[in-house]
């Protein structure tokens, strides 16, 4: 009986095996070194110390979720410190940007490669945080939310115009200087009949060379346009940036370019709203945002260069100065 309980012994090494066998392979049961055991005990002691010093145990309700530990360690606090540190390190660059723009305008930023890259990076990150929900990650826009990359500006595409749009918002009544205007809802408020709206819709489409059906009454449309619309959209349909009346001749449509969409805009009188950011973002961040949007490619004076094939930044810098 006792014989039976003895573990088997490996012939070659003379060491006991664990007694298990896998495909003829057995495992030697060598003893663990004693110091290894001590290391194990030491790790237990360490764990206890760790639990005392660091937050480790769930606490009963009312005690903030968990124990604080003697070190009062908190990752959340660490992140706050790291963020403050980051802010402090970015501070000088933001200050430099603000100063450069104040003194030399946005083109001055273009002359300093490092500042330019900082502006683009800071602007991109602030844009992602605050604007991308409405304007798209890259500023490409959606129906009702303008594309900020093209050269068609509702409220003006100079750096100062863009800056003011961001500061004061659009139709944001809480801000005293907000950009404001209101197109009448010609259909909903029954200022024009259905036929009149159809006629003026066809006429508006011809302004940007869209094809209209052959039996469209363009003469009536032109007449209504001059009477009802030209005061805002101008005689030639090129719009008026001072009141945010879009250019109707360039085939870039904020509310869509199908006949139905254009007709609907005239019917309801669109009322696009964008919040003011003055109270929400620090001034240098707004400056960075405005510069970023300006430099996305559509900024006025920036885009003029694109008419020629080679850039003429030197001339541009001179003219801006």
């Amino acid at each position: 009986m006792a014989e039976h309980d003895k573990p088997p012994v490996d012939e070659i090494s003379g060491v006991e095996t664990t007694g298990h066998e896998w495909d003829g392979i057995t495992e030697l049961d060598n003893p663990l070194p004693r110091w290894w055991l001590w290391c194990f005990y030491a790790s237990i002691v360490w764990a206890i110390g760790y639990m005392i010093f660091m937050p480790a145990l769930p606490a009963p309700p009312g005690f903030d979720g968990h124990t604080r530990g003697l070190r009062n360690h908190s990752e959340r606090a660490n992140v706050a410190v790291a963020l403050a540190d980051l802010e402090a390190r970015r501070g000088p660059m933001f200050a430099q940007l603000q100063q450069t723009v104040d003194e030399g305008g946005v083109v001055a930023v273009l002359n300093d490669g490092d500042l330019l890259n900082f502006t683009l990076a800071a602007g991109r990150s602030a844009f992602g945080d605050n604007c991308a929900t409405c304007h798209g990650v890259g500023g490409g826009g959606f129906t009702g939310y303008p594309n900020l990359r093209d050269d068609d500006w509702i409220w003006g595409g100079s750096f100062d115009d863009i800056r003011h749009t961001i500061v004061a918002g659009i139709r944001w009544e809480e801000h005293p200087e907000t950009r404001f205007s209101e197109m009448p809802a010609f259909g909903r408020d029954q200022l024009l009949s259905r036929e009149e709206i159809n006629a003026v819709t066809d006429y508006v489409m011809t302004l940007s060379s869209l094809t209209v059906s052959e039996n469209a009454d363009l003469a009536l449309g032109a007449e209504i346009y001059q009477r009802e619309c030209a005061s805002c959209h101008m005689d030639d349909g090129r719009g008026d940036q001072s009141i945010g009346a879009p250019n109707l001749t360039n085939n870039i449509w904020l509310y869509g370019g199908s006949r139905e969409q254009i007709r609907h805009a005239i019917h309801r009188g669109p009322y696009g709203v964008m919040p003011a950011w003055e109270q929400r973002l620090p001034e240098p961040v707004i400056t960075a945002l405005a510069a970023y949007v300006y430099l996305l490619g559509g900024g006025e004076t920036l885009q003029q260069r694109e008419a020629g094939l080679a850039p003429q930044m030197a001339a541009e810098t001179a003219s801006a100065g």
């Binding site: 890259g138 500023g139 490409g140 990359r149 068609d152 085939n251 694109e306």
Partner: peptide
């Protein structure tokens, strides 16, 4: 890629 391309007022197309 966001946006993929931009159409300008004169109808020309731009990529960044």
């Amino acid at each position: 890629r966001n946006p993929n391309f931009v159409v300008l007022t004169d109808g020309s197309v731009r990529n960044a």
